[in-house]
Amino acid sequence: MTPPVTPWWRNRRLIPWLVQAAVGLLVLVLVAFLVGNLVRNLAAAGLLLTWRWIGNPAGFDIAGSWLPFSAEQPYWWALLAGLVNTLRVVVIGLIGASIVGTAVGVASFSGNALLRGLARVYVELIRNIPLLLQLVFWYFVVFLALPGGANAIQWPGLVLAQSGLYLGMPELVNGVWQAPIRLSVEFAALLTGLIVYISAFISEVVRGGIASVPKGQWEAARSLGFTPLQTLRRVVLPQALPVIVPGLNNQYISLAKSSSLAIACGYADLYSVAETTLNQTGRAVEVMVILLGAYLAIDLVISALMNGLNRAVQLRSR
């Protein structure tokens, strides 16, 4: 009697390769189909891929650019100015959201029931309202409604006026505020919105981290005579950080990506400059490549930095 022959469709070494070949072929055909259409459609529109346009004068202005920019300068400089504006709001936003988020996260462990309750209300209120809605609220309802001139809201070292936020020693000169640092209301609205929204998520990360430290650690530190603040700084946070840092990474990346909503409050970030560029040149594919590449690079830089931080806090806890 001959041994039973395994039919090919039950051959356990062949099947995985067949499946992969089929999937690979399918993906290849799909990609070829899409790219073929793209090339045909672009050729029909006279927009075959080229980067020559990027040296042409942009012809539009960027309000509140940090890099010196004027309409005669080329597109690539405009996009760079947009990127710098994005980085500026991301970096300041990261610092602000971390501070507020940590404060709220720690407050949810306060002995004071009112403070604890408010921290919960803050998180539940902010997380359940879309960021874009919050941004337009901050911009149109809060910052654009600020009084101007002598009626501006004045605090020591800070003036909130319709023409912007003035930091340092603001002075009213001929009805116009002057100060060493001036932030536009667009920037201020975007920054406030991002910090408020992301800090609610960061506070949850911080809360989870602190909750992961056994209660006995608090009690032991207190019985050794540590004050509550010392307990937090010297005993609890060093043990909570290894849990907190990976979660922070996600929130930081989320903040960087969310900064692309700047267009809703009139701030000229990378996305908003890219959209204007597209409207003027019609170069959809090239602009898209720049956009995706830039945000991917920002994400990778944040991840790399946070991985470094993660290694540092992990080692310390050994």
Partner: peptide
């Protein structure tokens, strides 16, 4: 890795180019 708004932008401006 991409913000949603850039993907929506892709959907509005490039999807049409990828199809017949």
């Amino acid at each position: 890795g991409a913000p949603l708004i850039t993907l929506l932008f892709l959907g509005q401006n490039i999807l049409g180019l990828l199809l017949p």
